[in-house]
Design a protein around this nucleic acid. Structure first.
Lengths: 155, 155
DNA sequence: AGCACTCGGATATATCTTATCCAAGTAGCT
DNA sequence: AGCTACTTGGATAAGATATATCCGAGTGCT
């Protein structure tokens, strides 16, 4: 999995707290990561429709919908794409004892197992929203930290 | 996921049918894949203890235990390794408003979600054995195909 | 109209996967 | 016992993907 997924998720949690657009440079500085590379992740999220960008002065990124309506899977698929990790190359149809194509209407047993596992993985990621992440984080951080973050974003 | 996983799984199903050692070249020819690259996958499975190799004349690879005792996860981990796809870099401990380290004893919310999804994925793969794959394949192939495969392996 | 600030796509670098080769080792045959 | 043929094992190139970066296009404010 791409390492940018972690950054993107952190950005979403931060954006859900800000009510004003946050520029990419500020998001990078807050998390202490490469600004030019984070820009790429934000671009991917913009294309996926998770965030909306406004250019010009006082511009930046805003979530397009409520944090409770954005799942972790949405972010993962925006960054890493929607294609499953396993791709069946139909090995059974190759070689000297190849299975004839008309016998291969159903996916082979290996593909079925991989698809099933991929579905379980995605279901697990779909069950958690950005709002859930924020709620969990609020339970752990020190009191006043949220206010400090909001103030830092506004500065 | 590495493409070699598919080859490795196909090799396991074929090895479970053969009662004699099968050399890597024969496995590659049967599946019509690169012999030199397949050798690498077999090497990884050998290191993981899934197959045992015998050198010299009439040598080759044999499964070390019954097909019902080898799960799909065993093969996937032998080829792709046991490390989870997501690795938390503790972003929360970086930046101007970094969370102090003593507050970070528990993994962050993002890491928890990813670990949970990874566990669901692995559980799904662990639930299926090579024997299950063979049984599923037997249901789909034409009658007599198994005997032809055994004969080809012996030739 | 000009200016300062922001995003977006095109462009280098690094790392991992894929693919290949040759040397080490083993079993059976002479 | 030595030899030969066969097989695996690790070390080595080529290609693909992920990572990191830069500069031009666009937008709102003065």
């Amino acid at each position: 999995m791409s390492g940018g997924v972690e950054w993107a998720l952190h950005c979403c949690t931060l954006l859900s707290r800000a009510s004003q657009p946050v520029p990419a440079v500020k998001l990078a500085e807050y998390h202490d990561v490469s600004p030019s590379y984070l820009a790429k992740q934000l671009q991917l999220m913009s294309r996926a429709g998770l965030v909306r960008s406004t250019q010009g002065n006082a511009g930046g990124y805003v979530l397009t919908r409520d944090a409770a309506a954005i799942t972790v899977l949405d972010v993962v698929e925006a960054i890493d794409g929607v294609l499953p990790a396993f791709r069946c190359t139909e090995v059974r149809q190759r070689g000297p004892l190849a299975t004839p194509a008309e016998q291969c209407a159903d996916p082979c047993a290996i593909a079925k197992v991989m698809d099933s596992a991929d579905r379980a993985w995605r279901d697990s990621l779909r069950a958690v929203t950005i709002a859930d992440l924020v709620a969990d984080a609020d339970r752990q951080i020190l009191p006043g930290a949220v206010e400090r973050a909001r103030a830092w974003l506004a500065s």
